[in-house]
Design a protein around this nucleic acid. Structure first.
Lengths: 136, 136
DNA sequence: GTAAACTGTAACAAAATACATTACAATAAG
DNA sequence: CTTATTGTAATGTATTTTGTTACAGTTTAC
């Protein structure tokens, strides 16, 4: 997917933590983030798939954290949300007749995995609880 | 700019290191990377601006490394190329009436800077020379 | 039991971004 | 003076991201 999924997801999670277990509607979330409610629901679908939140349908429904904010770290959130390579896509097909072109995707990939791990390690040091506490 | 600037720049630099100081034309580079020569020249403009390469116009012209590959590390290359936030853009305007919306961009930004620094630190451990040597 | 407030999800539209192409002036070599 | 090349602008095309509309399904409350 896209480029603003992490900020959107973190914004959602922060609002849910703020709500202290109260149901929060996708319309309310969308209003704070200032994006379309359908996008919020799509993002919530993903957060739910990863066990961070749960939702209740019907009148008075909405979403809420499925586990304590202290048990969610930002590295996990990042992993739940990222699907593109951090250092840029290498979707193109380099020239296989060139020794560099032939091997570069493999080497880039190795580099990506290593660099991204450093990023995730850093993010994992911060919990959602700690992040949300900054808004107090 | 875009998502494939880092791989393209690194591909260029690797080819130039491979060429051992010989001039390499943007057409040749574009052929290995399999993108348009104009994009290569634009990327080279940036690499030149950052002192990694130099170019010579006219017949027989092309580009070459402006300093030893041992003195270029991948963190520098990353910094020369990245202009979007690593964790995604937060270009949108969250609702200023919401306590979370009002402050989130500042907190996201702090997080970005911290996380990106971890990434850069990791990338900085590898030189262009070491990366290019993998293609031997 | 039906109206209201929601979620879930698909289909489509619009906007933004990235990438490619064309064109051509300027430069340098031979 | 011809040829190969960079530098750069302008424009077109494709891809990706985001927004919108629509509506079926679920739950609540009266």
């Amino acid at each position: 997917m896209n480029s603003s999924r992490f900020p959107v997801s973190l914004h959602i999670l922060t609002l849910l933590e703020d709500a202290k277990g109260e149901m929060v509607s996708s319309d309310f979330l969308a209003g704070s983030i200032n994006i379309n409610p359908v996008l919020v629901r799509k993002e919530i679908m993903n957060l739910r798939k990863h066990g961070f939140v749960d939702s209740k349908e019907g009148k008075g429904g909405g979403s809420f954290l499925a586990k304590s904010a202290a048990d969610i770290n930002l590295g996990e959130v990042y992993k739940a949300v990222k699907n593109v390579n951090i250092l840029g896509q290498s979707k193109n097909e380099p020239n296989p007749k060139c020794p560099v072109g032939r091997q570069i995707n493999q080497h880039l990939n190795d580099l990506y995995i290593d660099a991204e791990q450093a990023l995730i390690d850093r993010l994992s040091k911060q919990t959602l609880a700690a992040f949300a506490a900054k808004f107090k």
